[in-house]
């Protein structure tokens, strides 16, 4: 369409080209429309109602509540807001730890596996990648045993005479633990924002959440290692040799040649990591369901619980859309930051 300029007569057959093009694209357009766009629009409608899950949400008689489900998450002083903000807090800590950790680990593994000095490279490559192809539910169950009260980790720590925490029943925040404060200072406990006191906001991830963080970093870094590895193998050897000729040491070559060449992959890994971590659901569902004391509650799980347990489908979908918005905004922000650094 764009090719058709004003003043020039359209070529014969051009219209037919357009129609043919659309015809060829039609199956995909229909599939995407029916299975992606339509459900999203339907969910958006549900988020504007207080549909209780009985019958169709599109018939008359389903109460329309406007933006109430959304404003409730931010303005009304009740449990819904408190749960939502708790889940946001938990997920912020989760993202802030998992994303950098898995990126660094993945890059490190990729460098190791890519090194020409390493023997049995293909073995290590598969070994590091293995957790990523295993079902996350199976991995979660195995980690439940490892972190259990008399599980492998507790036994191992016990061997060294260390008494580890009861991982999945310990709701204390690690920041509180590290600082060794049990009773909150009044300045933090009495003030806050969005229904949580500053003391609660600043708790850090709970011990239970740390176990989940360890699991996720372990499972996902394999996938990202593969991406880094592909990018590393794309870097021309000549570049590295040229840098060597210029007298660049190993560290300098990594800093000024390898890392800049990896920037697009870095962006990809960070973006995928960010999206994946904000949507964390299956590990939470299998391992903790939000317990202990809501410290592993995440927006994705809260959305599910609100919809399918409390039959409050409107509020549940509203949480999903807020989560979607958070992810989009953060990705845009991240793109901007990375572009600025390039310029």
């Amino acid at each position: 369409m764009r090719r058709r300029r004003a003043g020039l007569p359209a070529r014969r057959g051009h219209l037919r080209d357009d129609v043919t093009g659309w015809l060829f694209a039609a199956p995909v357009v229909v599939i995407l429309g029916v299975f992606l766009l339509l459900p999203i629009l339907m969910a958006m409608w549900v988020s504007l109602t207080s549909w209780n899950g009985q019958g169709s949400p599109f018939k008359g008689g389903v109460p329309f509540v406007g933006l109430d489900n959304y404003s409730r998450l931010f303005t009304r002083d009740d449990l819904a807001r408190q749960d939502f903000m708790t889940s946001i807090r938990n997920n912020v800590y989760y993202v802030a730890i998992v994303v950098p950790l898995q990126t660094v680990l993945a890059l490190g593994l990729a460098l190791v596996v890519n090194s020409r000095l390493l023997k049995g490279r293909s073995f290590f490559r598969s070994a590091f990648f293995f957790p990523s192809v295993t079902s996350s539910v199976a991995v979660s169950v195995v980690f439940l045993f490892i972190f259990g009260n008399s599980g492998a980790l507790a036994q191992l720590l016990g061997f060294f005479g260390v008494k580890g925490p009861e991982w999945f029943s310990d709701s204390r925040g690690v920041l509180h633990l590290l600082l060794g404060v049990d009773t909150p200072p009044a300045a933090l406990a009495d003030h806050g924002v969005f229904g949580l006191s500053w003391w609660e906001w600043l708790s850090g991830p709970s011990v239970a959440m740390c176990a989940i963080i360890a699991l996720v970093v372990w499972t996902t870094s394999g996938t990202f290692m593969l991406m880094f590895l592909a990018a590393l193998q794309d870097i021309p050897v000549t570049l590295e040799e040229a840098a060597m000729l210029d007298g660049a040491g190993r560290r300098q070559r990594f800093r000024y040649v390898t890392l800049p060449m990896l920037r697009p992959t870095m962006f990809l890994v960070l973006t995928l990591g960010l999206i994946g971590t904000w949507q964390v659901f299956d590990q939470i569902y299998v391992m903790s369901q939000g317990a202990p004391a809501k410290t592993t509650l995440t927006p994705a799980f809260l959305s599910y619980r609100t919809a399918f347990r409390d039959f409050d489908y409107g509020a549940g979908t509203a949480i999903s859309f807020v989560l979607f918005l958070i992810i989009v905004l953060l990705t845009l922000f991240q793109r901007r930051v990375m572009r600025e650094r390039r310029g």
Binding site: P39, V46, S136, F281, D282, G316, T317, S320
Partner: peptide, 11 residues
Amino acid sequence: MKLHPLAALAA
């Protein structure tokens, strides 16, 4: 990660 609640709700 694979079972996104939004998708479930939409479905």
